[in-house]
Every structure is written in structure tokens, then in C-alpha cells.
Design a protein around this nucleic acid. Structure first.
Lengths: 156, 156
DNA sequence: ATACTTAAGTCAAATATAGTCAAAGTCAGC
DNA sequence: GCTGACTTTGACTATATTTGACTTAAGTAT
């Protein structure tokens, strides 16, 4: 039996998927009601699953007529996605950040599944086996190096 | 009467066998309950019996809705070459060694040109930026991790 | 302006899982 | 009986989720 957070995540993803626009607007209390949970659970789902690293942007408004708006950031220029991602890595990368980024690149079809696995295995904490904060710094450098390789790749 | 670890191993094997999918998900506490043992016994069984060498890959998640997922993996056709190469890496890898190995894998058509570049960029001394001998050790671990990924591909 | 109403946000405690590690137990072979 | 490999056990740790009390912001009525 799955947990409710994953169910809500799946629901929101689907709503975004089926939407004509590039963003959706939800009412926190309604979604909470639909899934029989407290409203702050929706914040939890959004904070843990709809992050910038995963390619989402969230805005909201309180008070009467309030809403939570979730946008999918789909950049069609691959190099833009990579450049953006590299910028986020400048100050070190935790394993979770790395995973989010790699899954996003996979999702955007910039890398293949096999390449994703390759990258993730390279930057896994069990592979690097270095003390923090060196580990996060090395991880960031490896990711940046690999992303550069992908970005400036010749088609041969 | 066999020991409980063997019994649990047999049970899990059977569950995998009967499963439609190539992986199963279990709840550690439920299996422990079923066999009247402490939960960490399940970890013991998994660590000693469902290893990569025996063709399994294990993932898990903690917290509410947590699980342990056991996957079967399929050997890459060229796994012998990879195994041989990994052996050479056991005691650290200089950049030159890494390059030799990657070129050989490319030559044997085990990896693509793009993958070769990806790997080389990850283990470049300018990327790792660590002092010797740590650098050669980390480089070896990264290479081994990536080669393992190539060697063992899951069926999905 | 001020007070009231309606939302969403924050944060920490409670809960639910799984992981690690080392001590203690078991058993086969010498 | 002794030794070593393997197994069993449980205390402690790590991580993810759920819940609710309290806070903050925006709109509305007086």
C-alpha cells in the first residue's frame, strides 16, 4: 500500500499532463479534502516533489480566491537546460540534488536511461566515499564535467 | 529444519518467481512478522543472498509507505571483458589507466563514443581535483561503479 | 482604517519505516 | 573442547511521512 504523498504527487502530475496550459492551479483545501488529509500535506508534497531541480515552479496566493499554481518548466533548447542545471551546481551537490537533476535530464530526453544510470552510479555517495563537504564538491565537479560533455558534444 | 535465513530466502525467491513483474516490493516488518524474527534479519538475508553477484539489485525507501524492492538483473553480453577490467582497477587507477580502459571498451563496442567521453570527463584529474593518492582511489571507484552499471542491466 | 474572513505557509512533534553494527548464539570440522 | 564461519538478536541511527497548532497574507465588509 502506497503512502498518500505519492498518490497526491501522481494525481498532480496527471493533472499537469492533461492540462492544455503549461501550468495548473489548485485549491489546497480542495485537494486535501479529496485525499482526506490535512492541508499542510499538500505543502509537503509540493516541497518534496515539485522542486526546481525537478523542473517545476510553484507560486501561490493566500486569502480569498487563493490558489497554488504549479508550472512545468520545459525548456526546449537542451543547452539551456544544461546551463541552468550547471548553475545550480556551482556550490556543491548533494546526492538528492544530483538524482533530481539526472531524472529531469532523462525526462527531458537529453540523456538516455543508460546514461542516467551511468551518471548516478558515478556520483553515488557509496562510490565517492569521501567526507562531507569534499564529497558534495567533488560530486558537483563530476556532474558539471559530464554535463559539459553532453552540452558540447559533436555528433560523431 | 533449516535456519530461518534460508527459509526467508526461499520464500522471497518464490515470490519473485511467481511475480509478473521483474521486481517485487516487500515490507520489511511484515516479512519479519510472518517468519517471527527481528526486522534486521531481513537485511541479513538480503545482504547475504540477494547480492549483485547473484543477479539481484535491491532498492528501498524508509518512512511511511516504505518498502524494500528486489529486482532481477540480466548480465550484459560483454560482461567478461568488464569483469576483467574491473579487476585491474581494484588498486586504484591513474588517468592513463582510465583512458586505456575506456578506449578498449569503446573498441569492443561495449560503450558508445558519447559514453566514453562522459566517463573520461568524470574521471579527469581536472574534474576530481583531489590530492594523490586519494584521486586515483576515487577515480577507480567511479570507474568501477560505472562499469558495474553497464555490466548489470535490469530488465526494465 | 479596522475588523473579520478566507486561504495558504511554517514548523516541530508524532509516527512509520528501513539500515547499521556488534554482541551473542549455533554448528560443523578439527 | 576449540575455532571459525554463519546466523540471530536488539539497541541505536537515519530517513520519510503524517498531523496539527500556530502564523501570515489577501480580500471583504463596516
Amino acid at each position: 500500500m502506497r503512502n498518500i504523498s505519492d498518490v497526491i504527487e501522481g494525481y498532480l502530475r496527471q493533472v499537469i499532463e492533461l492540462s492544455e496550459r503549461d501550468h495548473i492551479e489548485i485549491k489546497r483545501s480542495e485537494v486535501a479534502e479529496k485525499f482526506q488529509c490535512v492541508p499542510s500535506q499538500i505543502n509537503y508534497v509540493i516541497n518534496t516533489r515539485f522542486t526546481v531541480d525537478r523542473g517545476y515552479l510553484v507560486e501561490s496566493k493566500r486569502g480569498g480566491g487563493g490558489y497554488i499554481r504549479i508550472k512545468r518548466i520545459r525548456l526546449h533548447q537542451k543547452s539551456d537546460v544544461i546551463a541552468e542545471v550547471i548553475e545550480r551546481l556551482e556550490h556543491g551537490a548533494t546526492q538528492v540534488m544530483a538524482e533530481d537533476i539526472v531524472f529531469r535530464l532523462l525526462d527531458e530526453e537529453i540523456i538516455s536511461k543508460r546514461e542516467a544510470k551511468l551518471i548516478l552510479s558515478a556520483v553515488d555517495r557509496g562510490t565517492l566515499l569521501l567526507p562531507i563537504p569534499t564529497r558534495d564538491e567533488v560530486r558537483a565537479r563530476i556532474l558539471i564535467a559530464m554535463l559539459f560533455t553532453i552540452k558540447y558534444q559533436t555528433n560523431t
